[in-house]
Computed example of a mutant assay.
Amino acid sequence: MSTLAKPREVASGYRAGRTLPLGVELVRQLKRRRTMVMFGILAALPVVLLVAFQIGGGPGPGNGRVSLMDTATASGANFAAVNLFASAGFLLVIPVALFCGDTVASEANWSSLRYLLAAPVPRARLLWSKLVVGLTLSLAAIVLLPVIALAVGTAAYGWGPLELPVGGTMPIGTATQRLAIVAAYIFVSQLVTAGLAFWLSTRTDAPLGAVGGAVGLTIAGNVLDEVTALGDWRAFVPAHWQYAWLDAVQPQLQWNEMIQGVAVSITYALVLFALAFRGFAQKDVVS
C-alpha cells in the first residue's frame, strides 16, 4: 500500500520570491568599502589622464598615423572615448571581476552563507539576487567612467564634436549616442569575465581567488588572441572582439563585428552562469 508524501510545512506568510530582495542586497553591496574604493578609482582616472596630458603637452601622432588616442584633447567627447579605449582592455575587467566574483565567496569567507540559506533563502534566489546586483554594479562602473570623463573633458577642452581619427567630425548629439553604444558593448563583452568570476565565486570560499582567477583567465584570453597561428580559431576567443566597438566611432556605424562579439560573449556567459547555478544547487555549504 503506497503512502502519500507528507506535505512540506511552510511558515505562514513565507514567500521564497520575497527573500533577499534586490534592493536590500544592492544597499548591502553599495555600503561595502571595496565598492566605494572601486568607484572612486574609476572617477579619478579621467582626472589622472587630464593631468598627464597637461604635463605632457597632449598626445601626438606617431609613425605618421593618427589614432583615437591622438585626438584626446580635441573635445570632451574625444576625451571620453579615449578613456574608454585606455580602460576597456584591462581596467574595466577589474570592477566586473570584483563585483561578480566577490559576492558569493565573501559570504562563505565570513561564514554567513549558511545562515542566509537557513533564513531560509532558496539557493537559486540567493544566486539570482547576487548576480543581478553584481551585474548592476558592473554596468554602473562601466557607465561612470565615460560620464565622468565627458564632464572632465568638456571642462578642459570644451563641448564640441567628436573628431574622428580617419578625418572629419561627428556632431555632438550623434557622438553621445555612439558613446552610449560603446559603453553598452563593453558591458556585454565583459559578461564573460562576469560569468567566470561568478562561477568561481560559487566554487571557492576565497574572494581573492575568485576575483583573481577571473582576471587571470581574462588576461590569458587576451594572450591567446595574440597567437596568430590559431588563425580563424581566434574568432571563438571572446578577447578577439573586445575592441569591435571602434566601429562605432567611424563615420558610418558598422554592426557586423559587434554582433559577432555580442554573440560570442553571451554564449560563454550563459554557459558559465548555468554552471554556477547547477554547481551551487548541489554544493555542500558548510561556511
Rank of each mutant, 00 (worst) to 15 (best):
A155R: 14
L113A: 10
T174V: 15
V24R: 07
L26I: 07
V223Q: 11
G167Q: 06
F187M: 03
Q54L: 15
N256T: 15
R28K: 13
L200Y: 00
L208N: 09
A74S: 15
A180S: 14
N222I: 13
A239P: 05
F90I: 09
P207D: 02
G101H: 02
Q250W: 13
L191F: 06
M36K: 10
Y185E: 03
G64S: 03
F79R: 01
Y243R: 10
P46G: 07
L98D: 00
L98W: 00
A197T: 00
D232G: 07
V132Q: 04
A108W: 01
L224M: 13
T202C: 08
K31Q: 09
T176S: 13
L92T: 01
E25Q: 14
S2G: 05
E163G: 04
V211T: 02
T73L: 10
G213A: 09
D247I: 07
T193R: 01
E25P: 04
A105E: 05
L150I: 02
R114D: 08
G279P: 13
P207W: 01
F198D: 00
Y157M: 06
L116A: 10
G57P: 04
V227C: 13
A105H: 02
P46C: 11
L208I: 09
P238W: 03
T193D: 00
I172Q: 10
S265G: 04
A197M: 01
L42F: 09
G279E: 14
S87T: 06
L4F: 04
P95C: 07
S112I: 10
A108S: 13
V132L: 06
Q177S: 06
D284L: 05
G212E: 03
G60R: 13
V133F: 01
G158D: 10
F273I: 14
A77Y: 08
L91A: 09
V227D: 14
E107K: 04
W245I: 06
S129Q: 05
E107S: 12
I181H: 07
A43I: 08
R203D: 06
T19C: 08
P21W: 12
P251R: 11
F85S: 10
A81T: 05
V66P: 11
I219T: 11
R178W: 00
M258I: 15
V37P: 09
L208K: 03
V227I: 15
G64Y: 02
V104E: 01
L253A: 12
V192F: 09
E163P: 03
G213M: 03
V262D: 08
V27I: 12
D225A: 15
P7L: 12
G134I: 01
S129K: 05
L253V: 15
L117V: 03
D70S: 12
A11V: 15
L49V: 07
L30W: 03
L208E: 07
P161K: 08
A77D: 09
L50Y: 04
A229E: 10
E257M: 08
T3H: 11
L246I: 08
K31H: 08
G56M: 11
F273Q: 02
L150W: 00
A77G: 09
